[in-house]
Simulated scan of single mutants.
Amino acid sequence: MIRFLLRRLGSLVAVLLVLSAVVFLLQQISPGDPARAALGANASRQAVDAERHRLGLDDPLPVQFVRFIAGALHGDFGTSYRTHRAVATDLASAFPATVELVLAAFVIALVLAGLFAASAALRWPFAGVYRGALLLGATAPPFLLALGGIILFYAQLDWLPASGQGTGGVGSAVSHLVLPATVLAIAPALAIGRILRAGLETTLVADHVRTARSKGLGEGAVLARHVVRNAIGPALAMAGLQLGFMFAGDVVVEQVFSWPGMGNYLANSIPTSDYPAIAAVTLVLGAVYVVVNTVADVLQTAADPRLA
């Protein structure tokens, strides 16, 4: 197990280094001049040249890359051209909102996935209706699902707010969170639920499960002791992938619901060519994705040590 953890840690560092190199190169080949963007379109050529020198943009690329890595390791991503604040300060306010949204969506996705898998594997009544509704929701584009939720639950029923994070206490925060988190959870719930359903159906007909039933164990005990643990490994891996995708793919949801997170911050930074902000968000979301999948691999190996 220790060797496996060391291998995964080495892979984590290598992937993050490659991601940093890709982001750095994309900054270099992107159209536009960061110095010009920082000073404005009306700045003189002399002022732009001086700004390029101050930013170190006329240094050799290897020197710039080392400085980029060193800054990222210390949480220094430069100053946003749009907000004129340190990017790290902007991220410090946007990142918790994104974490709140994604973790709430992940919990909802796990609940929906568990219901999807159990209803299919155990042949619950009306399981087909639930699976059909989840499949329909997962195939709809996120922006369409979000708009449909706003029209139904805000405009028609007036049950839930349509935008913002909510600042009026726990009840307000939860009510503002329900719609965007559910929209973000639908597609991951179907992906995780399908893998878990396949694992449950395969394990339920395995020999050791038949033996456990023949010994007089109740169905609940059989499921808890002999079925779930053997079926959950692939679902854990898929859950890790989907959690990473949720961090990387919540831009649309945050935009539609005006959620003040990193996705919204990134979407507002792209039209203004705010390179430091774009690079920082890309690195942070990429790092979160890699770390989450590493943790999922470790959990999967803990559930089934044969994978180490």
Rank of each mutant, 00 (worst) to 15 (best):
M1D: 12
A212V: 04
Y81L: 01
R52L: 05
V298K: 04
E201G: 06
W124Q: 13
P180T: 10
T282K: 01
A86I: 05
A212D: 06
D58V: 14
L112R: 03
V87T: 00
V256P: 02
V253R: 01
L6K: 14
L39N: 01
H74T: 13
G148N: 14
V253L: 03
Q64G: 09
Q27E: 13
V22E: 10
V228L: 11
P161D: 06
E100G: 09
P96L: 07
I108N: 03
F116Y: 15
S163R: 14
D58G: 12
V66C: 11
E201H: 09
A133N: 12
V205I: 10
D297L: 07
G148H: 14
L134G: 12
A92P: 04
R82C: 05
G263S: 08
G218F: 08
A267N: 07
T79V: 15
F245R: 01
V107A: 15
G137Y: 00
I2W: 02
Q27G: 14
L285F: 05
R54P: 04
L134C: 15
S93I: 11
A117Y: 00
S163L: 08
P271K: 02
F143I: 11
F106S: 07
F68N: 00
V228D: 03
A181L: 07
D297H: 09
I2Q: 08
M1F: 12
G148D: 13
A47I: 04
V209L: 08
G164K: 08
V102N: 01
R8W: 05
A88Y: 00
L307Y: 05
V290T: 14
G10Y: 11
Y130H: 11
T272G: 01
R52V: 03
P260F: 08
A86P: 04
A224V: 15
I192P: 05
G149R: 04
L19I: 14
R82S: 14
A212C: 04
L103N: 00
A105N: 01
A117W: 05
W124F: 15
A35Q: 03
L135G: 12
S93D: 15
G216F: 14
G149V: 08
R36K: 10
L152Q: 12
A133D: 12
N293G: 10
